[in-house]
């Protein structure tokens, strides 16, 4: 699963706040955003990204996840 670092960083830092459908993604993103409040330099970015990619990959057959992946790809 290819997800743009630029898009994901915008989402994780709150520069972009798209609406997602998949409940587990909403919970995970919220936890990661709280981590990032203590890690504004995003030193743990690769771990954060891996958690998101793993979650989406494991649920890639769900229509809500497919929509959310498209949403992430649409973040510029």
């Amino acid at each position: 699963m290819v997800i743009s670092d630029q898009a994901l960083k915008k989402i994780l830092t709150g520069q972009s706040n798209p609406q997602f459908n998949f409940l587990a993604l909403k919970i995970l993103l919220t936890r990661l955003k709280m981590n990032i409040k203590k890690d504004p330099q995003l030193s743990g970015y690769h771990t954060y990204k891996q958690e998101i990619v793993d979650l989406l990959a494991k649920n890639q057959n769900l229509p809500s996840v497919q929509r959310d992946v498209q949403t992430i790809m649409g973040v510029n």
């Binding site: 587990a24 993604l25 919970i27 995970l28 936890r31 958690e51 793993d54 979650l55 494991k58 649920n59």
Partner: peptide, 10 residues
């Protein structure tokens, strides 16, 4: 729970 490994796998 949100920190459990493989959170949200199913």
């Amino acid at each position: 729970a949100p920190d459990y490994k493989a959170f949200g796998k199913s």
